[in-house]
Design a protein around this nucleic acid. Structure first.
Lengths: 215, 215
DNA sequence: GTCTATACGAGGATAGAC
DNA sequence: GTCTATCCTCGTATAGAC
């Protein structure tokens, strides 16, 4: 109970016997664990320890580890999915649309840096079998469409929209995925500080916009 | 024995009782397994099954799972490390140096598409604790130096070399990491076909060179 | 060097009290 | 809804024969 009270405090939750609060607690801890380890290597034990609730609550609310994983996956993607769908890019020029899209994307992941790690584990470990269901593919499709429009109007140079969409996503997301290796680079900056995240967004957008623009 | 003979044939190995051959067999299978699952989620059982040798041979040659992991990590990186060190970029213009570096990098990973997956399991799961030792940081340092030189001479636009190096690596490597998710995108192409790999290299280089060049 | 058989611990999942 | 205690499978690692 001491452990639970502490965990609750750090996450701004109060009641001691509240279904929703407990679920939220578990989901938050699970997101961290799955982000670092992926489905197979994640430990329900570790998740329970972080939340302060009993391990069995995971099974009570989510049936099994896989159920919890799918809940985390869906919850993590929904934010980004909502955001990109609400952008209303059709009336913008390709370049303006691209910049708006990238700003939204980078803002999302800056506020949820675990998301790229989760996506990555899902891609590599599970070959995207769960990702497939959670129709997050629409994010990529949005980007491809912007690029297609830009090459058609001549605003962008001749490029392959599909390949370029992948490479652009890489430019934005790699920072978060490679963090664990990057941080050993001899330079004292905290990669998740507000200043560094802001700088990363600006640098990524600048690189991409310059990279696609017609010369 | 039937299983072993088969595995040996597919990897062009012959003798039935040969220390080096067995080690190579295990290393090859382990690389695949670790690439997909990372250290913790990898199964020694699965590695043994792929090779056709008994599970206990892993422990005979590599002491334990972690020992095998480190051997795989070192072996996987050495190729890329060798290549980048031999490039002799100092006498080239920043732009030429960058193109040569990128070509070498993309060529390496195209021939060993598992490498980026291994690097990033290492980054995410293990926070780069093994990567750190295997002085592979020199690859990134090479790229940072090219960018520093380019901004100093005015060949490149004003950009942060450290941030840009990360983003550039992302442009090149994300394709391989995100493959599991990307392949579900509704388009019939095999991402690892020679044609697609070649196209990816060209698109990535084009995007990056255009992205850093002074306008 | 290679195999088979097995010990042993870790971790997913459940039972049942409160 | 939540906890404690427990079951049992899976997976690492070793022993020992060939």
């Amino acid at each position: 109970m001491a452990r639970r009270a502490k965990a609750e405090k750090s996450l701004n939750v109060k009641q001691v016997r509240d279904a929703e609060a407990t679920q939220a607690l578990i989901l938050a801890a699970a997101q961290e664990e799955f982000a670092q380890h992926g489905l197979t290597a994640a430990r329900t034990e570790a998740i329970a320890a972080k939340t302060g609730v009993a391990k069995s609550m995971i099974y009570y609310y989510f049936k099994d580890k896989e159920g919890l994983y799918q809940a985390v996956l869906e919850r993590s993607h929904s934010n980004l999915l909502q955001t990109t769908l609400q952008l209303d890019l059709a009336h913008l020029s390709p370049e303006a649309a691209l910049e708006k899209f990238l700003t939204a994307l980078l803002n999302c992941v800056s506020h949820n840096p675990k998301l790229p790690m989760i996506m990555f584990h899902e891609a590599v470990q599970n070959q995207g079998q769960y990702y497939k269901r959670s129709s997050s593919l629409s994010i990529d499709r949005t980007l491809v469409e912007i690029l297609e429009r830009g090459t058609a109007t001549g605003a962008f140079r001749q490029l392959d929209p599909f390949q370029s969409a992948i490479n652009i996503m890489g430019t934005c997301l790699f920072y978060f995925i490679g963090m664990g290796n990057i941080k050993h680079y001899p330079q004292g900056k905290r990669l998740l500080s507000k200043a560094m995240l802001e700088q990363h967004s600006q640098e990524a957008i600048a690189l991409i916009l310059a990279g696609v623009r017609k010369v």
